[in-house]
Simulated scan of single mutants.
Amino acid sequence: MGFHTFDPESADKLEDASRYRYLSREELVGALDLDPDRSAVADFGSGTGFYTDDVAPFASEVRAVDVQSEMHELYREKGVPENVSLVTADIGDLPFADGELDAAFSTMTFHEFAGDGHGDGAADRAGADDRSGAEVEVARVLREGGRFVVGDWSANGDGESGPPVGERYDRDEAVELLENAGFSVVRADERPETFFVVAER
């Protein structure tokens, strides 16, 4: 992932039901548009599996992908659903074949891995010719027509919750990154503290 990852020592915050204030299970699952009998889905930046657990009943298999093995250890302690496999990997180098996944999602972690480095601010990272960010790798592992759903902290937020504002993208920057990676954006909402984007490969 990128320049900021969530501290495993604060992982109890990842299990706080108040997270649904920013993204509900219903909105996430609805946006993924899954077939429960044949959908292979990945949660990028899965942490302790808070949203992974919500998606698992609606998919045939889910890959919980996180760069920190400590997060997987905490998820195991909590209990992992039978159709969820834990994958320790960087989003920029996924151990999946081309088109292997039917859908993917990222909840409050897009800012950790998107773009090509994190130098002088999010706007600079969303350059029109940048095709080396992890979102390009996400596009590679999704089948044609597969959805990538992103809910993340917005650079337009006030920063009272989540990472510092300077480490975030806003909706338009996220859309630009995804479109540059070959996605077609079908929904893009800017909210008081977050943005929500639905894109198709």
Rank of each mutant, 00 (worst) to 15 (best):
E26G: 08
D189P: 05
D7N: 15
S39I: 05
S69E: 15
P81E: 14
F50V: 02
G49Q: 04
R201V: 04
R143N: 07
Q68I: 08
G145L: 10
L86G: 01
A188R: 05
M1K: 00
A59H: 04
P192R: 11
G133S: 03
L14Y: 03
D116K: 01
S154W: 05
A155F: 08
S46Q: 00
R76V: 14
D189R: 14
R187L: 12
L74I: 09
E190A: 15
G49R: 01
A139G: 06
Q68V: 11
F113T: 01
P36L: 07
V84G: 01
D124C: 10
F105C: 03
V80P: 05
V197C: 13
G162A: 13
G2F: 03
Y22P: 01
T5S: 12
H111E: 09
F58V: 04
D130M: 12
L23I: 11
E173K: 02
A104N: 04
E112Q: 12
D170V: 07
V55P: 03
D152R: 01
D35A: 14
E70D: 15
E61C: 04
S46L: 00
D43S: 00
P57H: 09
E173F: 07
K78W: 11
S132A: 14
D33M: 14
R76K: 13
A40C: 10
V65A: 01
G115W: 01
P36C: 08
P95R: 05
A174Y: 01
V197P: 04
